[in-house]
Design a protein around this nucleic acid. Sequence first.
DNA 1: GCTGAAACGTTCACAAT
DNA 2: ATTGTGAACGTTTCAGC
Lengths: 148, 148
Amino acid sequence: MDDLDRRIVALLIRDGRATYAELGAEVNLSAPAVKRRVDRLLDEGVVRGFTAVVDPAAGGWRTEAFVEVYCSGAISPEALRHAWEGIAEVTNAWTITGQPDALIRVLATDVRHLEEVLERIRSAASIDHTETAIVLSTLVDRRVPASG
Amino acid sequence: MDDLDRRIVALLIRDGRATYAELGAEVNLSAPAVKRRVDRLLDEGVVRGFTAVVDPAAGGWRTEAFVEVYCSGAISPEALRHAWEGIAEVTNAWTITGQPDALIRVLATDVRHLEEVLERIRSAASIDHTETAIVLSTLVDRRVPASG
DNA sequence: GCTGAAACGTTCACAAT
DNA sequence: ATTGTGAACGTTTCAGC
């Protein structure tokens, strides 16, 4: 993971479909040399894969919310993961420090749908209660810290 | 945005570097037909672009936190966006309903670095106080609701 | 790491439906 | 309006250096 790797990764974050020739032109390397590095980065898990960045609203997901989850008793993170992975509308979930045990990001079509998802979240594990905050606007949207 | 578009988008979320021929084989379309659809989806903004999915830990980002921000007085979302966009470690920020005015996701190298980022966040706008929750584990990590 | 060459993918104009 | 075909061009992906 040298400086060349970091530059290639930064370029691939900006354009995940950039050709090896284009990447090579930016970092002064031949296309095969770039490919070998990208293959190695994929192998090492530095780059997990490539994906399309989709506008959720275009798919009808117009309501976004964060749900703080307070559990009752001891529940393993693995049990929570298993329960929430099966709920399609749960896009992200983390266990966290502080008063709530977990934080969930939910995408729903509307508030009515959100309420229905919250019921499924609560019934999927022995949960004490939840606190929901609806997203008003997205101010910053990156996956990793800004670089260049 | 018909069913064929949705299937192509789902395939591109799974593999953002899939060739048009591969996509076409899955949806029974020729490569040029798939390309025209993808070009249109990009044009319409349904697909915003393509990116590499990178492991933050591989880049040294081993500490993740969510920061609830309580503002003092009236601050425009635009002012908050401008202030936080300039902080590299702020990967995401949303204005939300409920007690806090905003929620921020931060990636830092360690807890010491996180504390330093929090200082920058607080001094970047007229903020009353913040409440930070450090991420213990990531249970679910998707961008959009699961589909297939 | 580079080069060369074959296989493969992309991207266009054009015809078909 | 959208698709498939064919051909030119660029890219990928080897092996050999």
